[in-house]
């Protein structure tokens, strides 16, 4: 047996709530969110940072929750699909995904939504190719990606129109 895992005290803000926990230093952020906080909307797909199913936002930056340790998030602000759904930040994207059936099994969907939101925050006028390129770190095995691209494109258009009016 290796040495017992070290424990560390962390204090962080998750979806606006201040959380204090003692965590194993080897525990990754998504494991922490899921196991300690019951926030099961972020999923494990590969644990290699490839599939994007575990995408969360840490201090405003989109990260792979499986590649970040909970211990690294001491003092950080973490946002997950649950928080961003609750505060309406993703509402137009969620509506567009729903209307176009841009999800099937839903396992990739939280990560896909967060990734799409990041793109829209950075680039209000992405081309279809840019949307496809930006979503290329998020694996979806069910859809043909097309409905997802359509949904993101529609939200871009709607946000621009809203901003112009």
């Amino acid at each position: 047996m290796r040495e017992p895992a070290e424990i560390m005290e962390v204090k962080l803000v998750v979806n606006g709530e201040t959380i204090s926990r003692r965590v194993a230093v080897r525990q990754n952020l998504v494991d922490f969110l899921r196991e300690e906080l019951g926030l099961t909307g972020s999923h494990f797909g590969c644990e290699h940072g490839v599939c994007g199913a575990c995408t969360v936002v840490v201090d405003g930056e989109m990260v792979r929750g499986c590649l970040v340790l909970a211990a690294q998030c001491d003092g950080a602000r973490v946002e997950t699909i649950e928080g961003l759904s609750g505060n309406g930040a993703l509402a137009d994207l969620q509506r567009a995904f729903h209307e176009r059936n841009a999800l099937q099994c839903g396992f990739c969907t939280p990560g896909m939504l967060l990734t799409a939101a990041e793109l829209l925050a950075r680039n209000p006028r992405p081309s279809r190719e840019e949307i496809r390129a930006h979503l290329s770190g998020n694996y979806c095995r069910c859809t043909g990606y097309q409905a997802i691209v359509d949904a993101v494109e529609a939200v871009c258009r709607a946000r621009r129109e809203e901003a112009a009016s």
Binding site: F44, E82, T109
Partner: peptide, 15 residues
């Protein structure tokens, strides 16, 4: 039934 999946409120076995 897609709305709860969009809100991260699906329930897969690991959840």
């Amino acid at each position: 039934n897609a709305k709860r999946l969009l809100a991260g409120r699906g329930q897969y076995v690991d959840d």
